[in-house]
């Protein structure tokens, strides 16, 4: 990987794309491009092999059935696992987050084997969590408070191999007061869809990880920051 170019792999948009998940690609491309970093994005459908030379892999949300299919095909394919061994960044939302774990709940709540890329285990909760979510991010990541929208019925238990991404300030998240999880450069969150839009700090963290840089030049204030501020005020006031 050259230091000024990033390859983004959008994994299985045919199965895992229901809530504007494409937004995460667009935000990463844009924030890289504005800093003179070129990007190349490949959309990998579930009948294609997952390339192993990507820098950032994005997984979106999906209904129960596509989630199960995606898990099965990604396990058989093995590309995402190899990319992980090569140090790639993986960012997954909602159903994508759950399937990174060792186990998640299927259509009838039955346990389904996940990818085992994060030490988490998800099952089906009593009640659907639908609404705005706000969380204070693990200080070690040095990212401002996150804001997003969640819509899931999952409950996720974190194992000793991961740390929670955030502590819930508003909303449900994992179900135990934490939200999301990360280990090394693999991260998942219950904020669904275009989670990076309102969280430019999180987008920049992924870019820094991919570029192996401690810092990136700041960008001028954008509408995303104003949106972020408005949403945080609307939820917390």
């Amino acid at each position: 990987m050259s230091s000024d170019s990033i390859k983004i792999v959008w994994v299985y948009p045919d199965l895992l794309s229901t809530y504007g998940d494409q937004g995460n690609c667009i935000v990463l491309e844009r924030r890289a491009r504005l800093r003179g970093i070129s990007t190349r994005t490949v959309h990998v459908r579930s009948d294609e092999n997952v390339p192993v030379d990507g820098d950032i892999y994005l997984l979106g949300g999906g209904e129960d059935r596509p989630q199960i299919l995606a898990a099965r095909r990604l396990r058989n394919d093995g590309g995402l696992h190899r990319a992980r061994e090569f140090g790639a960044v993986i960012f997954a939302v909602c159903a994508g987050y759950q399937l990174l774990g060792t186990e998640f709940g299927g259509e009838e709540g039955q346990p389904v084997e996940g990818l085992g890329l994060l030490d988490i285990r998800s099952g089906r909760g009593e009640k659907r969590a639908v609404g705005e979510i706000v969380g204070d991010v693990d200080p070690a990541l040095n990212v401002p408070r996150i804001t997003g929208f969640e819509n899931h019925q999952g409950v996720t238990h974190l194992g000793p191999g991961v740390k929670p991404l955030a502590t819930v300030v508003h909303g449900v998240g994992n179900g135990d007061g934490t939200e999301g999880a990360y280990a090394d450069h693999v991260m998942g969150t219950y904020m669904h869809g275009p989670a990076l839009v309102r969280n430019p700090g999180l987008a920049d963290l992924l870019l820094r990880w991919a570029l192996k840089r401690d810092e990136l030049p700041p960008l001028p204030e954008s509408w995303s920051e104003r949106l972020r501020e408005e949403r945080l005020n609307a939820v917390l006031s």
Partner: peptide, 9 residues
């Protein structure tokens, strides 16, 4: 819908 994520589709 309370969620505007779809704008990104």
């Amino acid at each position: 819908g309370r969620d505007t994520s779809w704008l990104w589709d």
